[in-house]
Amino acid sequence: MIFPAPLERGILIRRYKRFLADVTLEDGTGTTVHVPNSGSMLGMNMPGLPVWLSRSADPKRKLPLTLEMVQLPTGLVGVNTMRPNRLAEAAIGDGVIPGLTGYDVIRREVRYDSDSRIDLLLEHPGRAPAYVEVKNVTLSRAPGLAEFPDCVTARGAKHLGALERVVEAGGRAVMLFIAQRGDCDRFVTADDLDPAYGAALRRAEANGVEVLCYGCHLTPETIRLNRPLGRPGATG
């Protein structure tokens, strides 16, 4: 994924009300920006951190700047939860994820399980469709270790239940975690922050839901999936 224009640099002053942050731009201007992330952004919301922002060309937008990345000592971290679906779609189309090749149609936000929408539905004549749920991973509290979630996510557990029901009905279901950071090579669930989600993921995997985890290469110009992450202790 290539940004339409290089991201702009700033310094984080504070993040508040989940979807807002105050930032100082490089020219010294202070401004409020949109934060497209409903999680806690644990470890990435400290005042003084360098941040990278995209600017919308839409003159009607109240907040033209969007927080895209946070600069940590170990590298860039993508915090925009709107990006992983597009990253996954591009990677699947390019054959970057071996487990998800062989599908010639990728559909977005398809309704399923009565009241849910799957992030990506992969289809090919003569094959059962693959239902792919995508989650953005930003948390890392130990060197090289990506973690999810960064706060309690009842919605995430609900998605896992829907994926289990796809498998029960004879379909294929995939939980794809995308760590928008280049400093991790392993993935685990953050059971101390949300033990229910960790238990739900393990149950879903035991019941046939496939779990895939990938890291990214990030620059202020582009983001792309580039490597699978290991899963210490995984039984699936």
Results as ranks from 00 to 15, higher is better:
residue 97 I to L: 05
residue 19 F to C: 12
residue 24 T to V: 15
residue 97 I to T: 04
residue 234 A to R: 09
residue 159 H to I: 04
residue 95 G to C: 08
residue 235 T to K: 13
residue 148 F to Q: 08
residue 164 E to C: 00
residue 5 A to F: 11
residue 30 G to M: 14
residue 192 D to V: 15
residue 108 R to S: 13
residue 154 A to H: 15
residue 79 V to C: 07
residue 209 V to T: 00
residue 219 T to F: 12
residue 101 T to D: 04
residue 10 G to R: 03
residue 35 V to Q: 07
residue 169 A to W: 03
residue 165 R to T: 02
residue 142 A to V: 10
residue 29 T to R: 10
residue 169 A to M: 09
residue 216 C to R: 04
residue 59 P to T: 09
residue 25 L to E: 05
residue 132 V to L: 05
residue 218 L to F: 05
residue 72 L to C: 09
residue 134 V to A: 08
residue 29 T to D: 01
residue 27 D to K: 00
residue 20 L to E: 05
residue 132 V to E: 01
residue 84 P to G: 02
residue 54 S to G: 06
residue 212 L to C: 06
residue 214 Y to C: 06
residue 110 V to R: 11
residue 131 Y to Q: 00
residue 136 N to F: 10
residue 91 A to M: 10
residue 86 R to L: 13
residue 216 C to L: 06
residue 4 P to S: 14
residue 136 N to H: 13
residue 56 S to V: 07
residue 197 Y to I: 07
residue 55 R to W: 03
residue 22 D to I: 02
residue 177 F to C: 02
residue 216 C to E: 09
residue 123 E to K: 12
residue 118 I to A: 08
residue 14 R to K: 14
residue 213 C to V: 11
residue 178 I to G: 01
residue 58 D to F: 02
residue 234 A to G: 09
residue 140 S to H: 11
residue 232 P to H: 03
residue 114 S to D: 15
residue 78 G to W: 04
residue 96 V to L: 12
residue 45 N to G: 15
residue 27 D to Q: 03
residue 77 V to R: 07
residue 151 C to T: 15
residue 22 D to A: 01
residue 221 E to F: 10
residue 47 P to N: 13
residue 98 P to R: 04
residue 40 S to T: 14
residue 53 L to M: 01
residue 152 V to Q: 10
residue 208 G to H: 00
residue 174 V to E: 02
residue 76 L to M: 07
residue 95 G to N: 09
residue 131 Y to L: 00
residue 5 A to L: 10
residue 141 R to A: 14
residue 133 E to R: 01
residue 93 G to R: 15
residue 80 N to Y: 04
residue 220 P to C: 09
residue 92 I to V: 15
residue 202 R to F: 01
residue 234 A to Y: 06
residue 18 R to T: 14
residue 233 G to R: 11
residue 180 Q to T: 13
residue 191 D to S: 12
residue 141 R to W: 07
residue 19 F to R: 15
residue 137 V to N: 07
residue 12 L to R: 08
residue 15 R to K: 13
residue 26 E to P: 06
residue 235 T to M: 11
residue 177 F to G: 03
residue 27 D to A: 02
residue 112 Y to Q: 02
residue 15 R to Q: 12
residue 109 E to H: 00
residue 6 P to G: 08
residue 236 G to V: 04
residue 184 C to V: 15
residue 14 R to W: 01
residue 217 H to T: 15
residue 125 P to I: 06
residue 235 T to P: 00
residue 95 G to E: 02
residue 231 R to P: 05
residue 41 M to F: 03
residue 51 V to N: 06
residue 204 A to T: 03
residue 165 R to G: 01
residue 75 G to W: 08
residue 42 L to F: 12
residue 225 L to Y: 05
residue 97 I to S: 04
residue 155 R to N: 13
residue 87 L to K: 03
residue 11 I to S: 08
residue 182 G to T: 04
residue 49 L to A: 13
residue 152 V to C: 10
residue 145 L to Q: 11
residue 170 G to S: 09
residue 74 T to C: 15
residue 214 Y to P: 10
residue 56 S to D: 05
residue 176 L to M: 00
residue 215 G to W: 03
residue 156 G to D: 08
residue 112 Y to G: 04
residue 214 Y to A: 03
residue 236 G to I: 07
residue 214 Y to K: 07
residue 105 V to K: 15
residue 26 E to R: 06
residue 187 F to Q: 07
residue 67 L to Y: 09
